Simulated assay, not measured.
Amino acid sequence: MEKLDSIIFYNIDKAIRAYRNYAQRQLKANGFTITIDQWLIIKAILENPGITQNEIGDLVFKDNASVTRIIELLVKSEYITRTPNPDDRRKTNLEVTKSGKEIIQKVQNLVEDNRKIALEDVSAEELEIMNSALLKISKNCLNTKK
């Protein structure tokens, strides 16, 4: 029987969780009250004007309830605004505020430092191979009809 640490998907998940935990600890240690998920959602809104909550969920791998809860917190923290869509009452328009843009900028340097530390001793060639393999795995899983 194979051991957990020999299963590629276990190791991918373990690496992602280790990185997220590390990144969250770094945010807290540097005085930020924002979470990784909140940062991701602000970035998603900034990079995709007019994005819907469902689209945000797909982009950041969160269910609708989680996205709604995070957006509520971001509105309360005044990092984003939410206004009714005049063309469709079922939708809301999300916009990043000035303080939301500022927090993204402040956290960006820390995020880049976190990545450097996480990728220490990983060569450019290894990164390229890993990225290519992960993209193939995603494609295989998304395109299967089984």
Score class of each variant (00 low, 15 high):
Met1Cys: 12
Lys3Gln: 13
Lys3Asp: 10
Leu4Tyr: 15
Ile7Leu: 13
Phe9Tyr: 11
Tyr10Arg: 07
Asp13Ile: 09
Asp13Phe: 11
Asp13Thr: 06
Ala15Gln: 04
Ala15Tyr: 04
Ile16Phe: 09
Arg17Pro: 00
Arg17Ser: 09
Arg17Asp: 05
Arg17Gly: 00
Arg17Met: 09
Ala18Asp: 14
Tyr19Met: 04
Tyr19Val: 01
Arg20Glu: 07
Arg20Gln: 08
Tyr22Trp: 09
Tyr22Met: 14
Tyr22Thr: 05
Ala23Asp: 02
Arg25Gly: 02
Gln26Glu: 11
Leu27Ala: 09
Leu27Glu: 08
Lys28Gly: 00
Asn30Gly: 02
Gly31Val: 02
Gly31Phe: 03
Phe32Lys: 02
Thr33Cys: 00
Thr33Tyr: 05
Ile34Val: 14
Thr35Trp: 00
Thr35Gln: 01
Ile36Ala: 07
Gln38His: 06
Trp39Phe: 13
Leu40Asp: 15
Ile41Gly: 03
Ile41Trp: 07
Ile41Thr: 05
Ile41Gln: 11
Ile42Tyr: 03
Lys43Asn: 15
Lys43Gln: 15
Ala44Arg: 04
Ala44Met: 04
Leu46Ser: 14
Leu46Glu: 15
Glu47Gly: 03
Pro49Asn: 12
Gly50Thr: 09
Gly50Glu: 06
Gln53Ala: 05
Asn54Lys: 15
Asn54Glu: 12
Glu55His: 08
Glu55Asn: 13
Ile56Pro: 07
Gly57Ala: 03
Gly57Gln: 06
Gly57Glu: 05
Asp58Asn: 13
Leu59Ala: 14
Val60Ala: 11
Phe61Lys: 13
Asp63Asn: 15
Ala65Leu: 14
Ala65Asn: 14
Val67Met: 12
Arg69Cys: 03
Arg69Gly: 08
Ile70Glu: 02
Ile70Asp: 02
Ile70His: 04
Ile71Asp: 02
Ile71Gly: 03
Glu72Phe: 08
Glu72Val: 09
Leu74Thr: 10
Ser77Thr: 03
Ser77Lys: 15
Glu78Gln: 14
Tyr79Ala: 01
Tyr79Arg: 02
Ile80Glu: 00
Ile80Phe: 02
Pro86Leu: 05
Asp87Met: 08
Asp88Asn: 15
Asp88Ser: 05
Arg89Thr: 07
Arg89Pro: 01
Leu94Ile: 07
Leu94Cys: 06
Glu95Pro: 00
Val96Arg: 02
Thr97Phe: 08
Thr97Met: 08
Ser99Met: 09
Gly100Leu: 09
Gly100Met: 04
Gly100Phe: 05
Lys101Leu: 12
Lys101His: 13
Lys101Glu: 11
Ile103Ala: 03
Ile104Leu: 15
Gln105Ser: 14
Lys106Trp: 05
Leu110Pro: 01
Val111Gly: 00
Glu112Leu: 12
Asp113Ser: 06
Asp113Leu: 04
Asp113Ala: 06
Arg115Gly: 00
Arg115Tyr: 10
Arg115Lys: 11
Lys116Val: 01
Asp121Cys: 10
Asp121His: 15
Asp121Gly: 10
Val122Gly: 01
Val122Gln: 05
Ser123Pro: 10
Ser123Met: 13
Glu125Trp: 04
Glu125His: 07
Glu126Trp: 03
Leu127His: 01
Leu127Lys: 11
Ile129Thr: 08
Leu134Ser: 08
Leu134Asn: 06
Lys136Leu: 13
Ile137Glu: 09
Ile137Phe: 14
Lys139Phe: 11
Asn140Gln: 12
Cys141Val: 10
Thr144Leu: 09
Thr144Ala: 08
Lys145Thr: 13
Lys145His: 12
Lys146Pro: 00
Lys146Phe: 13
